[in-house]
Design a protein around this nucleic acid. Structure first.
Lengths: 191, 191, 191, 191
DNA sequence: GATGAATGAGCATTCATTCAT
DNA sequence: GATGAATGAATGCTCATTCAT
């Protein structure tokens, strides 16, 4: 699909940086070309259009954002269940160290999504991946006898919402004790 | 300050509609003028600039979005605490009936915010208003003897996150049992 | 011709100030209205158009700029001729103290003039008024026996040019010994 | 720096023509584009902005307007001094044949200058170049024993003013015997 | 693989002017 | 005498895109 050429990657990198800083609309191909150090038409050699470039970033940025990347469900046992759930979830905090770019652009997509069919479906799937992931996980907990079977779907969803919002709040710069929040949420979920 | 003129309101209405549909950047003043049925310069008679128009919408759309508009803390008693917390919170579901515009534009601001100092501060304050609101509420619950005093801050924050995300998920079109989710979250919080 | 109303004069004053500072094109009626503290359409009550306002200023600002306002030819005698010519001419230096506005706007007209038939004629007349004035003056000097008759036209023109340029150079901010320059020019002219 | 492209020069030529005819403000980029036969954005390929285009013309039009372009001081001797001064100075009359554009635009700058720091300095320098040039020239005349040493600065300045005004008056369309005027001025200066 | 040159479409903004009140 | 509201026309500028080289 993509030419595995250096310029190609430079364009992608510059795009992440600029799109996340200024948004899709306020970032022009000129800006990207300037950042890369090439001319505008050169971008067209690598991407058919601005939209195609954005599409590429969409695929690229979400390819690792799925439930199993965070929660390794197979490793959960009746003994380590609570601990695993807490530790796995706290991986989300690592985003803080990471480059803001991916988070910001992810958010950019979230907005674009409400208007763009293409992305909308894909994002709903992702969101549901997490909702289902937490549901399955809790169900496994029930099977293992470490999670109460009552309202597990609702509890899984609460968990998913908290997990989701931790990254949002971090992105916005709110300084909260996310660690404690997550632990509290987990404890409620498996209680 | 605002002319109490009909055109003024028409511009505001059209702006809500178009901005929420296409976003700030992709909505031009021409589009707004066309929607209202006036000429572009007429907008400038009512708003100094596109930015000023957006600012106006910002103030306008957030003026009723604060904790006390949802949670009437004074009416909470030891007897009705749980029930009130649940019922008050479920008001968020009413957004579903309401015009999407306000929600969408609210989201638009959320994105714009990461890049715009002006809005950023204001939104953080709003977010903190809710975080603090839930904290105070739970503290009152502790005083009333209906809420466990353990980790109340973390629990308040979990509650705030769930509350916050319910509107986001609704906006995205996810069909979940928000009622049950909220009840579950409340029960965990006051347990 | 003009309504002898206060607002009328305020508009004229504001126009002098703003036109001289920003030029005709870059000064809008809005700016003038704002400076006066009235609304734009109010200007139209006093002046039919922007052009009419400028015309008015043109007439107004040049009405006192003619040779006889500086050189009182009748008072020149064989005894005081040189002294009078010097002293009268030095009046031009007083412009320095005066508000820059008039000089600046005069210059603005000078430019506009090359493009506008209306003003062009009028300004040529003014220029010629000075050229002729100096010629007559020197001729009188010849009659009085205090000025050499050779090339008096050319010498009058030299004098006019120096006189003219003194104001230009002052306007531009050049710091020269204009006094000495004028005396030198006069001495050459009547030698 | 400048693309050695034909269009570039066409833009410059059209700009000279139109700016000198209508002034900077009343000449729009559309007009220039139409005159050249290209589209507006094409101008932006060659000049970053309207201001940048004007700057370019400023540099371009003044690059040959300095004292030494008219007066070849080294060739002045005690024998040819008067003759050289006259002949060299009369070169200014050649401007008459030349395209008005340059003179007109030069005048346009003169006005712009009173408001624009950038140009102001540069023009003052040019003016001073001539003032100093004439001073040096007369000083050389003194050294050569062909010019009286009295008030040479004032006399040099008178000369500069006459020289300067000859072009202005020609531009305005005044028909004078500039030849005789200049000769007279020179004779007075070296007398 | 990439550039120079150019274009069509569009945008936010400003301005002189008008007119009913 | 003056204002509120609006307009038509224009302006400088930007952008995504194209295409011959």
């Amino acid at each position: 699909m993509a030419s595995n050429n250096k310029t190609h990657q430079n364009i992608v990198d510059a795009s992440y940086k600029l799109f996340s800083e200024y948004g899709f609309d306020k970032t022009s191909l000129s800006m990207i070309a300037a950042e890369v150090g090439i001319t505008k038409p050169a971008i067209y050699y690598h991407f058919a259009s601005k939209e195609a470039l954005i599409d590429y970033l969409f695929e690229d940025s979400f390819k690792d954002y799925h439930f199993e990347a965070y929660f390794t469900i197979d490793e959960f046992t009746s003994i380590n269940f609570q601990e695993m759930l807490i530790e796995n979830g706290l991986r989300i905090l690592l985003l803080e160290d990471e480059d803001d770019s991916v988070m910001r652009i992810l958010n950019e997509f979230l907005l674009t999504i409400t208007r763009n069919e293409n992305y909308h479906k894909r994002l709903l799937q992702m969101q549901e991946d997490f909702l289902n992931g937490f549901s399955e996980l809790l169900e496994k907990g029930v099977t293992l006898g470490v999670v109460s079977p009552m309202n597990i779907t609702a509890r899984a969803h609460v968990l998913a919402m908290v997990f989701d919002n931790i990254s949002s709040y971090m992105l916005m710069g709110l300084k909260l004790d996310y660690r404690l929040i997550w632990i509290e949420a987990v404890n409620n979920a498996i209680r």
